[in-house]
Amino acid sequence: MEFPEELKYTEEHEWVMIEEDLAVVGITDFAQDALGDVVFVELPEVGTAVEAGKAFGVVESVKAVSDVYAPLTGTIEEVNDDLIDAPEIINTSPYEDGWMVKIRMAEASDADELMDAEAYQALIAEES
């Protein structure tokens, strides 16, 4: 299982890549593995306001429904429409092709609160 060093992570198993005042968000390798085959993704519309810690989307595997939480407060700038027809991309490429949304951050400094790869790995070691 991989946890790229350059990403930030949340307790809800999202990853975040900061690109200036944009945050690219997806779910981690750990999350996709735990879910199993992803068969449905629901994403917000561009322009939707999202709040840190609140659900902004849904990922469903064959068996389970999981909310996806906004790691940061801001506005949806872009969504990955490829996931609508091919949600399994989240399984095969969770950190790259499987990105879900880009959030324009209200406060870029909020990103400092997120976990680094080492802290996230310690968290999932505890959970599993």
Partner: peptide, 9 residues
């Protein structure tokens, strides 16, 4: 066991 290779496969 709930799954081995994956539910769909």
């Amino acid at each position: 066991p709930v799954q081995y290779a994956g539910v769909i496969e």
